[in-house]
């Protein structure tokens, strides 16, 4: 299935957001997620199913002003 992850087109076999994070190598990394511009809390990732064309954002803490 084709989805977009952090602005880049990707082919994924992951059926859920949780599975996508593992597939992308994030594992236990400290990240937050959004699906199609909506925040998805960490606790809901295992049941959040992915569909073709979805836009996923995966963000981490960073320097800021």
């Amino acid at each position: 299935m084709k989805i977009t992850v952090n602005g880049t087109a990707e082919e994924t076999a992951a059926m859920t957001l949780d599975a996508l994070l593992i597939e992308q190598g994030y594992g236990e990394a400290k990240v937050a997620t959004a699906l199609n511009e909506n925040f998805i809390p960490a606790a809901l990732r295992p049941e959040q199913r992915l569909s073709s064309g979805d836009r996923v954002e995966i963000v981490a803490p960073r320097q800021g002003g």
């Binding site: 952090n6 602005g7 190598g25 990394a29 400290k30 990240v31 937050a32 954002e57 995966i58 963000v59 981490a60 803490p61 960073r62 320097q63 800021g64 002003g65």
Partner: peptide, 22 residues
Amino acid sequence: ATVSVRREAGDERAGQAFWDMI
């Protein structure tokens, strides 16, 4: 301290290191 959230660049995984430093 003000901070932000950003996409991770490649396999860098800099977020955790920054979080630890903060």
